[in-house]
Design a protein around this nucleic acid. Structure first.
Length: 105
DNA sequence: AACCTGACTTCGG
DNA sequence: TCCGAAGCCAGGT
């Protein structure tokens, strides 16, 4: 299966997210060339996170929250992030100013 | 080619 | 800040 240019770039960006930091779906998409490709990032995570050994747990939504619902990955993702030092507030959200990786700089 | 699926995002109320 | 509607994207059917 030939991967689109956007898909390949997204994979490269995902691999570059440093341990202990998080990136947003839209941020990864923007840094990969298409600011509106957030949903493509989701697609990539669902179709190649295992085969490409991607750090899928380091991707959160724009509000710094985990998008996976409880019972379908939320607990695991949160545990993995906390084990890397990422902190969650009482509302279950991450302060992107502290842990968000600014891959654009 | 039309239609559907997602771990999304922005906008308006 | 919360909610729904609408927009967007690649790949699969």
């Amino acid at each position: 299966m030939a991967r689109s240019e956007l898909t390949q770039r997204i994979i490269d960006r995902l691999r570059a997210i440093p341990k202990g930091t998080v990136a947003t779906y839209g941020g990864i998409a923007a840094a990969s060339g298409n600011p509106r490709g957030a949903r493509t990032v989701v697609w990539v995570l669902n179709s190649a996170s295992r085969a490409e050994a991607l750090p899928w747990h380091r991707v959160v939504n724009r509000r710094g929250g985990i998008s996976l619902s409880p019972g379908r990955g939320y607990e695991l993702q949160r545990a993995l992030l906390e084990s890397e030092g990422v902190e969650f507030d009482e509302r279950g959200r991450i302060d992107l100013d502290r842990f968000g990786w600014d891959y654009l700089r």
